[in-house]
């Protein structure tokens, strides 16, 4: 019963947050900030702990797995484009994935983040369901990773267009891949404002980023964490 109620309430809050964001396109109104904030308010009023809430919302969290499977459909639909630009996609997304892990690691060390915060932040540039899996495999905390992925999405939606402007990127393929690589689904959302080609390549970039970061993350993250510990001794 509780599970059903929590699912309905979360859905209503999510719809409301989406509606408010469509009315005012302010970054702070992003549904991924607004909806959790409202839910935290609600559960603290009715005295439900966050852990209980997460347990009761398991149906919704479960849907992340089939949603990941569903990404096969856009890849299949765009298979000709993927094949045509495969070298560009692989080169740019591999560069992006490696830079994402390394830059996050170096910056995290620079601000002295705790060990589990570091492992949780490294897979942040990829789409949540897969970032959570990387985080689990490498000893991060799934909840923290989710929060970092969300922050990346919101921030990426703001800085993405700036980067494209600063570097005067003209190619729609490059714009799309950068947005999908840097800010996963939120980047793809932004890419839709540029055009259809940008949006398509953004979703291609997002999927490849997930796969490549997954492969490199599983190998690199334990290595980085190990080296970090050696040097701190």
């Amino acid at each position: 019963m509780m599970t059903f109620l929590i699912t309905i309430i979360t859905y209503i809050v999510y719809r409301l947050a989406k509606f408010l964001y469509s009315q005012r396109q302010l970054p702070f109104f992003h549904p991924l900030l607004l909806a959790p904030a409202m839910l935290i308010g609600i559960i603290s009023i009715v005295h439900i702990s966050a852990s209980e809430y997460i347990g009761d919302a398991k149906w919704l969290s479960h849907m992340l797995a089939p949603a990941t499977v569903a990404f096969a459909v856009p890849i299949y639909k765009h298979r000709q484009l993927v094949l045509k630009y495969i070298s560009t996609i692989l080169a740019s997304i591999t560069a992006g994935s490696l830079i994402a892990i390394f830059s996050s690691y170096v910056l995290a060390e620079a601000i002295n983040l705790k060990y589990d915060f570091v492992t949780s932040i490294l897979p942040r540039s990829i789409t949540t369901p897969i970032a959570i899996e990387v985080s689990k495999e490498t000893g991060g905390l799934p909840t923290l990773t989710t929060v970092f992925v969300i922050m990346t999405g919101v921030v990426g939606g703001i800085v993405g267009p700036m980067v494209i402007k600063w570097l005067s990127i003209k190619n729609p393929i490059a714009k799309g891949l950068a947005l999908g690589m840097g800010a996963h689904g939120a980047g793809t959302n932004k890419a839709m404002e540029y055009g259809e080609q940008e949006a398509t390549f953004s979703s291609i970039g997002m999927i490849f980023a997930a796969v490549i970061t997954f492969a490199s993350g599983i190998l690199l993250i334990p290595l980085l964490m190990h080296l970090g510990q050696l040097f701190s001794l």
Binding site: Y14, K18, M63
Partner: peptide, 21 residues
């Protein structure tokens, strides 16, 4: 598949609530 991907945000809202911990 289109529905699952369109509502992707909904599915990670519960985990985001965990930030209070």
């Amino acid at each position: 598949a289109a529905w699952l991907m369109a509502e992707l945000l909904l599915f990670f809202i519960p985990s985001a609530v965990g930030i209070v911990n």
